[in-house]
């Protein structure tokens, strides 16, 4: 308490410094609290209440958890989400790493920037716009993809309208959108690795593979972990692409957790059930992120 009084009414130079520091972080803390912490707390509280929008709210204990966690539709959505995630996260990370290494090797700075910008462009597009473009590309009748396949005499595919192809098709959109962002992170990290390490490796007669395996990848460990966590979060929360293209179809084959959460909250107006799903997503992501962080992260010092 005394500490806060001194921040509010500084007497010494150090108090003024503390106040300045506090004021600097205040906008960020306010924003973060209003946008993330308050809704999170509301979701947790909401998950124990049966709420009628615009009406009453009744405490029901863990009944909604029992209901949601025993609902087959919910677990189908979880399975679909994990399936999508398993397809897109490793693909995006590996591809981004390959592209970043390729760009890093380009001698011409101008061409490196041109290529980097091209890879980054999809990331700057709106997710809904990107999804709609891909919807057209995937169209079974007029789509560019089937037209391309017809040129090499491959029969047309149903893509987003096929139970088997819908998830890989959506995963490809995610990879396309996220590849540029991950590439930029890896490229920046590669550029910060001191050249002396590679010179030393050359003197020791290391092959290209050995340089990659024993130098580059270990030194990129923090970035790889960070990108994996970001991709995990992004893909677990996948919504825009699904909403704009398939709305969870066909036959719920692309129904994801967030899509189901959205429908539950805003189509069926079951705020409590939707809050349970939100808490589930939060706890799952937090747990997986912490595990990833603890198990795979290694301290790196150049």
């Amino acid at each position: 308490m005394r500490h806060w009084v001194r921040v509010a009414f500084p007497k010494t130079y150090m108090d003024r410094q503390r106040r300045a520091g506090f004021l600097f972080i205040l906008p960020a803390v306010t924003y973060f609290s209003l946008v993330f912490i308050v809704p999170l707390i509301q979701s947790v509280i909401g998950s124990f209440h049966r709420t009628v929008p615009g009406g009453t709210s009744q405490f029901v204990g863990i009944r909604l958890y029992e209901k949601v966690l025993t609902d087959s539709t919910f677990w189908t959505a979880v399975r679909n989400t994990i399936h999508l995630l398993l397809m897109s996260v490793p693909t995006t990370v590996v591809l981004a790493l390959v592209v970043a290494i390729g760009l890093h090797r380009l001698v011409s700075l101008r061409w490196r920037n041109v290529w980097a910008a091209m890879y980054f462009l999809p990331f700057s597009a709106s997710l809904v716009a990107a999804a709609l473009i891909w919807q057209w590309i995937y169209d079974p009748v007029y789509g560019f993809l089937n037209y391309g396949l017809s040129l090499v005499r491959i029969p047309p595919q149903k893509w987003l309208q096929s139970l088997a192809q819908v998830r890989p098709s959506i995963a490809l959109v995610s990879v396309w959108v996220r590849l540029g962002f991950d590439t930029m992170i890896f490229l920046a990290a590669l550029q910060s690795i001191p050249g002396e390490y590679y010179e030393a490796a050359d003197i020791d007669g290391a092959s290209g593979w050995q340089r990659l395996r024993y130098l580059t990848l270990p030194l990129l460990n923090p970035q790889i972990i960070m990108v994996c966590i970001l991709e995990l979060i992004f893909n677990f929360k996948i919504f825009d692409q699904v909403y704009a293209t398939t709305q969870g179809g066909p036959a719920s084959a692309s129904q994801t957790v967030i899509m189901l959460l959205y429908d539950t909250a805003f189509k069926y107006f079951r705020m409590g059930d939707a809050s349970v799903m939100a808490v589930f997503v939060f706890v799952t992501l937090l747990t997986v992120t912490l595990l990833q962080w603890r198990i795979f992260r290694k301290p790196i010092e150049y």
Binding site: P250, A251, S252, D263, Y268, R270
Partner: peptide, 21 residues
């Protein structure tokens, strides 16, 4: 009042048949 949710549950069966599920 819950016609949206009821029709969704029912529609899942309809679309399931259409897609041979």
């Amino acid at each position: 009042p819950k016609s949206n949710e009821l029709a969704t549950a029912f529609g899942e069966a309809v679309v399931g048949v259409l897609f041979g599920k």
